[in-house]
Amino acid sequence: MPEPTNLSDADLYKIAEQSLAAWGLKPDAMELVSRSENTVFRLDMPDRRRYALRIHRPGYHTLPELESELLWTQALNDAGIRVPVGVRTLNGPGYATIPTPDGTSSRAVGLVNWLDGKLLSSVIQDETDEKRIIDHFHQIGRVLAAMNNQASAWAPPSAFTRHAFDVPGYVGEQPFWGRFWDIPPLTRGQRDVLSGARAEIREALNDYGKHRGTYSMIHADLHTHNILIDPSGNLQAFDFDDAGFGWHQYDLAVVLFGLEDLPYFDAITDALVDGYRSIRPFSDEALSLLPLFLLIRRLVLISWQWERPELGRRNGLEAYIEDACNRTNAFSF
């Protein structure tokens, strides 16, 4: 069945309104607060509780995968790590399946508790004290280490299923975010560079393996736009849509990606790693792979952008590819 990706705001409001009965909710107000890969509405309840209602994009996760996301976030919360916790429907499942207004498709809709706070990206943008910025990255390192501690010690239920950012997930025949070395806009030279990087990444990760205490469930998208600072100054991670199995270095690389040209990049990297090591062991061997995972993040975003034209992600892609190839050529595998 075709999956419309160009739903209007009015269509999304209809889906959100229709889903409310699954939780028995009658909010005082429902506000569209985010429209990206997923759509998020904030619900304000008569008893002053607030929720985030998420309409998930089609084709990215199955319902069992979405249910597994709720299992992990609940386990994190049970371990004392404050993250959005899913609210199950009155009938028990974590999601309601709601038809699109034209009846040609459907959307999975979920509900999580609302987290109060200010986006870390906004805090950093407004901050003038470099030391305070660096301190935030020390905090992020501690949060990531706590999450990795929980995931490494956790035994997921037998029905748990999520994607993997492993060798096949990055550079296999059908990677999770697509074949970055094989998209139409690439020149022959760019294909050669990226295909060479693909082979080097496969070899390096196969040699490293998954048995070094650095592979488990990871957030996989904990950049500063997905971190809130609550009124007490504590960091809260949210948006677990990309969470899957992967190397811990990738979690760290996502935090740092896009910041490499900042004059204090080395300082925030040191702070991030120091914060992480204050909670969880992280060997020099593990740290030595961080530049590789920064490059991997850069490369997989090539196909990620290509495959999301409905969100305007292809704008500027040619320049992004050129920069990625230049950085790949400069990288020492």
Score class of each variant (00 low, 15 high):
Asp135Ala: 15
His211Lys: 13
Arg57Cys: 11
His219Asn: 04
Arg280Glu: 05
Leu63Asp: 13
Val83Lys: 05
Arg191Gly: 08
Pro101Ile: 01
Glu67Leu: 13
Leu259Pro: 03
Leu7Ile: 08
Ser303Met: 10
Gly316Pro: 00
Ala52Trp: 02
Pro157His: 04
Tyr276Val: 05
Leu299Lys: 06
Tyr250Leu: 00
Phe238Ser: 03
Val40Gln: 08
Pro231Tyr: 11
Arg280Ile: 07
Ser122His: 15
Leu32Trp: 09
Ile140Gln: 04
Val171Ile: 06
Ser105His: 15
Ser105Ile: 01
Gly246Thr: 06
Phe333Ala: 04
Arg191Val: 09
Ala153Glu: 08
Glu130Ser: 13
Leu311Ser: 02
Gly86His: 02
Ser8Ile: 10
Leu292Tyr: 04
Asn148Gln: 15
Leu20Lys: 05
Phe257Trp: 14
Met45Pro: 03
Asp47Asn: 15
Glu322Ala: 14
Thr100Pro: 05
Arg57Gln: 12
Val123Thr: 14
Leu71Trp: 10
Gly59Lys: 08
Asp126Glu: 15
Pro93His: 06
Arg48Glu: 15
Pro231His: 14
Leu25Ile: 11
Leu63Trp: 11
Glu37Trp: 03
Ile296Leu: 01
Leu20His: 09
Thr100Arg: 10
Glu3Ala: 14
Leu290Glu: 09
Ile81Lys: 02
Pro291Leu: 02
Met1Trp: 12
Glu67Gly: 09
Val112Gly: 04
Gly246Lys: 00
Trp177Asn: 06
Leu228Lys: 07
Asn226Cys: 00
Ser34Met: 03
Leu90Asn: 13
Pro84Asn: 02
Ala197Pro: 00
Ile81Glu: 02
Gln74Gly: 11
Trp306Gly: 01
